[in-house]
Amino acid sequence: MNMLAEPLLPSVNVEEKLFQDRYRVDVGRPHIKLRDAAVCTACAAKPCTVCCPAGCWRAVEGGGIDLVVDGCLECGTCRLVCDEANVDWNYPRGGFGILFKFG
């Protein structure tokens, strides 16, 4: 991996991108959950925080994870990159979640 190139890439506010997308949020019924928050706290790598294309996974002070799925694009990446199998991943209820205008 070319780590030296990293500073060349701009930091990006993904929320601004997600603002263009259409959602029907299933309030109070997140479709992705942590199985065990302590497992995330113990995880040093936290690939979810890098790979999630919607920035849903944020590392917080104290080593834990803050997961907010409202902006989720339903790609499934977090489930696959978690070496701890700590992601309880389901599709949202029918009609809820991301609603692509163009796709």
Binding site: L9, P10, V12, C51, P53
Partner: peptide
Amino acid sequence: MLGDMKRQQLTPYQLLEGLKR
């Protein structure tokens, strides 16, 4: 490839921004 992406520190949206620029 996700196997590569999980081993580095660039976010997908940074990569896209790099391509756009």
